[in-house]
Design a protein around this nucleic acid. Sequence first.
DNA 1: GACGTATCTTGATATACATCAAGTTTTCAT
DNA 2: ATGAAAACTTGATGTATATCAAGATACGTC
Lengths: 220, 220
Amino acid sequence: MPVGFDLADLARLDEVVATRRKIKQGQPLFNSGEVFTSLYAIRTGFFKTSVSTEDGREQVTGFQMAGEIMGLDGIVNDHHSCNAIALEDAEVCVMPFSNIEDLSREFPILQRHVHKIMSREIVRENSVMLLLGNMRAEERLAAFLLNLVQRLHARGFSKSEFVLRMTREEIGSYLGMKLETVSRTFSKFADEGIIEVKQRYVRIADPDALQKIFNPQPCI
Amino acid sequence: MPVGFDLADLARLDEVVATRRKIKQGQPLFNSGEVFTSLYAIRTGFFKTSVSTEDGREQVTGFQMAGEIMGLDGIVNDHHSCNAIALEDAEVCVMPFSNIEDLSREFPILQRHVHKIMSREIVRENSVMLLLGNMRAEERLAAFLLNLVQRLHARGFSKSEFVLRMTREEIGSYLGMKLETVSRTFSKFADEGIIEVKQRYVRIADPDALQKIFNPQPCI
DNA sequence: GACGTATCTTGATATACATCAAGTTTTCAT
DNA sequence: ATGAAAACTTGATGTATATCAAGATACGTC
């Protein structure tokens, strides 16, 4: 806890994250079009966010886990422009955005934090654009697995094995490929001994090989 | 100009945008890896931003024109993570981010503005992800042209004709397709009488047709 | 515990776009 | 003004991934 806060300050900061909300698996935290009031910090559980074309094609724009923030899309137009769906039973802190704005005027450290969270999301999306625009199926899936395991590891989970919370179709939507291609690429990695897969369970047997697929050596 | 500001306030706000910088065509405003200090508001000219894979493939992440803000990517790590290149001679306002943070603590209207700008960028990138992940070449180019003409129109330019500032290769990089495919798709639209193209010059002859390609009717 | 449904895997075939190639137009530097 | 380089167009061919299809596995419900 940073210095320079007295007890009254802490109480006010605590109030921002006071209210909580539980969301059942498969249920939306918010949907595109709904009025924006709050940001949400995930306490437990796993989410996907998505946008859709008018004719109903879905694009998964991200997968979010404990500690990550959702709802930033709603600030610009006071309405959400994407959907957030729980992929497992979840609990979030509801953080009214007007409170965040009020307090971040008083506490520069909070202000800085909010700015960094938004900037981080912009940078993440830049890297997804690179993935979707330039990479091949194997590179995309390697990038996805490495990113997922790194984030899980930062939360105290295993560096090498995990259980996917999303379907092949959702992975495919995020990575711009069809579920069959996701499945085939998983099988190919498994055949090559790079990973072990059994449905949702994944173990990364050779992280270096995966890294090499993601970062191919420039041909000299 | 919003109410509630006295002359002293205005002078301080004005100071944020006091310093300017000119960038020649083809030159970078900033590059990935450089230390982040400031956001930049475009006064005149046209930019592209891009990121790259380790083996040198480039992904254009956006095209920016007068009034738009660049540099948000640098906030999270105090270093830029993308490149900003002038596509024509340009001038920007250099806005030191620490000044912006200081002033936005004092002026809620500025604070709100900063938040909206960042949120808008997140929403824009969501829609690019949808484009790259789900749309076909014709839909991508239609979306691109409609977006470009809409932004130019908002700045007082023609609703139907304009001169592209970027090459076919740069358009292709942004849209996740090769320059030949961009060229062919331009030619196809021209053959169908939807647009008129002569190198960089484009006139949108049938905006409704373009809109229909972008928003295909869901098959009932 | 059995049944229906969702999810996943794998094979055969189709296709949108990439790649390779050659020629044309435009731009820019001298 | 002239030549070289960059940008663009168009055609022929190749390929990564989509699509279609069928079976296998896992999951949830009564």
